[in-house]
Write a protein that binds this DNA or RNA. Sequence first.
DNA 1: ACCTGAACACCGTTCAAGT
DNA 2: ACCTGAACACCGTTCAAGT
Lengths: 188, 188
Amino acid sequence: MGRRPRIDPASIVAASLAIADQRGLAAVTMQAVADRLGVTPMALYRHVDDKADLLDRVVEALLTELPLPSADLPWDQRLRALGQAVRAIARRHPHVFPLLLQRPATTPESRRVRDAVVASLIEAGLDDEAARRAERLLSTIILGFAASEAGGRFRGHNKRVIDEDFACLEELIASALQHATAASKRPS
Amino acid sequence: MGRRPRIDPASIVAASLAIADQRGLAAVTMQAVADRLGVTPMALYRHVDDKADLLDRVVEALLTELPLPSADLPWDQRLRALGQAVRAIARRHPHVFPLLLQRPATTPESRRVRDAVVASLIEAGLDDEAARRAERLLSTIILGFAASEAGGRFRGHNKRVIDEDFACLEELIASALQHATAASKRPS
DNA sequence: ACCTGAACACCGTTCAAGT
DNA sequence: ACCTGAACACCGTTCAAGT
C-alpha cells in the first residue's frame, strides 16, 4: 500500500487554481504547487508536460466549472443564465479568467460551451452561419465585460453601476437578436 | 562627455515593447531589456521602480500610440476611426495588448482616450451619465474584440470573416446609439 | 548622477538514481 | 510506476563600490 500515485493531473490543476485565486497568477510556481501537494516540484513533470501545459489545463478547468443551463428553459433565458454564470466564474477566479481571451477557442470545453450557445441561437431563429457569427460576437462581448470586471478595469465604480452596465449590455444584445431573427424569419 | 545618462524611461519602455512584439511577453526580462540597451540589468532600477512598474509603462505606451481622430470629423466617423485604430494597435502589439483589459482605466493615457469617446457621445446627443456608461460598454466591446483577435481566439477563421464580424459589431453599436439618442432627444 | 560586480533567493527543467 | 537529489541556466532585486 502507498505505492499508488499520490498526485494526478486533476489534483495538480486544483492546487494551481487555488493558489492563483488566493495569491495571483505569479504565485503559481511549480514549487508552490508541489508544496501544496506535499511533493517535490520534479514530481509534477510526470503528470503535466511543463508549466505552459499546466496553465492550459487550469484555464480549461475554468470552463469546466461553467454550468450549462437546463435545456427546457426558453433560449433567451438560457443565454441570460449563461451570461451570469460567466460573470460568476470571473469573480471566483479573477486572476485566471483573463487568460480565456488569450487562447484559441478550440479546446473541448470551449466547444462544449459554444455548441450550447449556437444551439440557443438557432432555436432563436438564426440560420447556422448567422448563429456562429452571433456566438463569436456574444462570447467576445461577455468575456470582455467579465474580464474587465474581474481585472479591475471598472474599479472606482460600485457594484450597482456595473450591474446596470451589464443590464444595458443584455438589452443591447436582446434587441440586436430580435432584429436579426425578425430579418431571417421574414426573408423579404 | 559621456557622463550623461545612457538610458531613460522612454528608451527602456521602447526596448521592452520591441522585445515583447518580437518574442512575446515572457521574453521581456530585465536582462533582455538591458542587453538591448547595452547596459547591465541593475542600471534599469535607477529609471523604473521594478518590473511591474516597467510593464505598467509599456501598457501606457500602447495607449499613447493611439491617434485620436481629428475633431472636425462627425462624431460617428470619429468613433469608427477610433475602433479601427484600436484594432491596429492590437495587431501591432498582440502580446502586450491583452494587458489593457487587466488594469484600471484610470491612467492619464486611458483618460485621454476616454474623454475623446465621451465627447463624441455627448455630441451624439447623450447626456453626461449616459455617455459615460456608453463609453464603458463601447470600450469593453472594442477592447474585447481586439484582444480576442490579437490573442488568437479567432484563429481558424480567415481575416475576411473576422472583418465581417467586426462590421457586424459596428452595426450593432450604431443601432444601439441611434436608439439611445432618439430616446434622449424626444423625452416623451 | 549614473552604472557595475557581487551576491541572494527564487525560477523552470533535466536526468540519473532510488523505491 | 512514481518520486527525489543534484545540477543547470536563468530570473528579479539589493547594496556597496566604482567613475
